[in-house]
Structure formats: structure tokens, C-alpha cells
Design a protein around this nucleic acid. Structure first.
Lengths: 163, 163
DNA sequence: CGTCGATGATTGCGTGTGCAACAATGGCGG
DNA sequence: CCGCCATTGTTGCACACGCAATCATCGACG
């Protein structure tokens, strides 16, 4: 790419639309998907995200800090969130044998049922509100690009606890 | 794996990476840019967004509800945010003559100076962490796509007060 | 001209989240 | 083996935000 000077020239129109569009589209999408999930399943989007990440693993359990990194939450934030999920019976904490400090969040049967039920409508929402606006080749491009972005933006200070 | 019949087919790998990548990239980007802005100018990203939108208008003033819609905040949220910006001397409230209910948020000289100073580093951040990972044609594609997404996801219930 | 529903802005309250502090444990070097 | 620092998870506190209620005002209709 053209070497960028530190000159603060403003963004051109396309750059501006690409950036602000990201902010706006993301905000609208998340708000909408969260509202749908909340309305149809009484489940906030962040809670759903946690359950999905757990469901994607063998045994449906993950270390707390790994979950936190996966959903971009602070450890304290995840503690409270798992408190709520545990109260609702969707996950349970299990201590792990090899590290007495650590704790797993493990999906319960109810939690797995919940996430499967919620997935149905959530996936429809993602398709309708997001995927529908991109061609397959555009999606492939996006998938690649996000990885470039994420790779260049490491989670601050933490290469994750299970690195 | 549980055999589910009425479940819509799950996202394929590309769709999944496109969607989760959006969530993750957005989260990382916003966190990083917010941290930079906070560190170098003591200005949270949301506050900066408000100031920028004001600076983009003639006279540097906007109706409160328009600002709220622009930055995807609730009216109450914006009220508090403008409270803080006013306390810091970056904006001031001015009542408008033609609608006694309404109020403008108007950029002060200090606010304009602040947003210009912050823009310098913020634009660098956007270029370095976001724009740098896309080619010009990809940016053009994104700009278009976000508008399709946003057009299909109207702000719930409100076509904006100054529509 | 008076009334009524709609709209703009603010406030009370509840909630979700991050930061800093803490206790418990792991892992490493002396 | 012991001491020292890093890491994990939790808790206290503060803060930003949304929702619902409220007040003032606008616009329209009879």
C-alpha cells in the first residue's frame, strides 16, 4: 500500500463511508439481532455468544478466561455473565483438576437446548439482515479481511491464557 | 451431535468467518481506537463521535435527537453525554427559535479545537488498524455494502425527528 | 380557539461492564 | 525447598447506557 505520511489529511468519501458504515451497520445489526433474541428467547446477544462458543467445543466447556477472550469481555464481566447463565441453569461451573485456580464454564443440557433453539432464529436474522447483502465472493473477501484486521489488533496484553 | 431436523442449515465456514469476524474485528477496533483516543486526548470514542458529527455540519450545531440517531444512542443517553461534553466545555446547548421543545448541541471553539486535535491521531488509527487492511476497491465495496445493510435495518420506530 | 395525540428533551431507576484490589494457586529460579 | 512473580477468578466501586415516566411544546382537527 502507499506509504502513509503522518499528515492528518481527512478521509476521502469512500474511506469515510467504509469506516462509518462499519460502525453504523454493526450497531444496527447488533441492536436488531439482540432485540430479536431477547424477544423470542429472553436471551441477550452476549449471553447467546457465550453459549455458542461453549457449544462449539468438545464437552461444551471452556476455561473462564478463554470464554472472556472469545467474546471480548473482561474477566469480571464474564464472571457476572456466567453468574446469570448459571442462575438460569444454562451453564454450570466445574473446577478443573489440573489447575486449582481455574474454572470451567460447562453447558448444561438446558443450555444446549437453549442455544439450539435460539440458533434457529438467530441464524435467520444473520442471513436476513447481514449475509443477504453480500455475494458469496464478497463474503469470502470479508472473511479474509477480518482475519487480517484481527491479526493486527491483538487483544491488549493477553495472548490468551490457554495460548 | 444431536440430530435436529427443523434447524436451518448452519452457517458454512465462510459465512461464519464473515459474521464472527465482523463482531470480533469491530470489537477489537473500537476498543483499540477508544483506548488511543482516551490515552492521548482524554476523550472517549463516543464523545469524539458526537463532536465529529457536530463539526461536519454548518454552524457546528445539531438537534439533540439527530445527534442521538447519528451515533446510535438513546435520547437519554445523549442527554447525559452532552452533559459531560458541556461540563468539559466542548459543546453548549442552545435553544432553537422555531421549536421551543428542541435544543441544539453546538460545538464551542474549544470543542472544535479538541476534535481537530483528536482527529489527527484518530485518523491515523483508523488508517493503521482498519483501512490498511483493505484495497481501494475493497473499500468501495464495503462502503456500498454497509449502505445496503443500513438501509434494510432502519432505526427501530424512528425515521428520525428531522426527517 | 380549545383539545388531543405526537414529539423533543430530561430525570429516576435498573443493569451490564471495566478497572483496581484481592485471595488462591501455578511455575520458576535460587 | 522456599520465595517471588504471573495468572485465574471473584468482588467493590464507578460509570455509561436504555427504558419508562414526565413535562413542555408542536401540529392538526373539530
Amino acid at each position: 500500500m502507499a506509504s502513509i505520511s503522518n499528515e492528518p489529511r481527512p478521509l476521502d468519501a469512500v474511506e469515510l463511508r467504509a469506516w462509518r458504515g462499519l460502525l453504523r451497520a454493526h450497531g444496527l445489526l447488533v441492536k436488531r439481532l439482540d432485540a430479536e433474541l431477547e424477544a423470542e428467547h429472553g436471551l441477550p446477544l452476549t449471553s447467546y455468544e457465550v453459549l455458542v462458543h461453549l457449544a462449539d467445543t468438545d464437552g461444551g466447556k471452556m476455561r473462564m478466561c478463554d470464554v472472556a477472550e472469545s467474546v471480548l469481555l473482561s474477566r469480571s464481566g464474564l464472571t457476572r455473565l456466567v453468574d446469570r447463565l448459571e442462575r438460569d441453569g444454562y451453564v454450570e461451573r466445574v473446577s478443573c483438576a489440573d489447575d486449582a485456580r481455574g474454572a470451567y464454564a460447562r453447558l448444561t443440557d438446558a443450555g444446549r437446548a437453549k442455544v439450539e433453539a435460539a440458533s434457529t432464529t438467530h441464524l435467520e436474522g444473520i442471513r436476513a439482515h447481514f449475509l443477504a447483502h453480500f455475494s458469496p465472493s464478497e463474503l469470502a473477501l470479508l472473511a479474509e479481511a477480518w482475519e487480517r484486521v484481527a491479526a493486527a489488533a491483538p487483544a491488549p496484553g493477553a495472548p490468551a491464557c490457554s495460548a
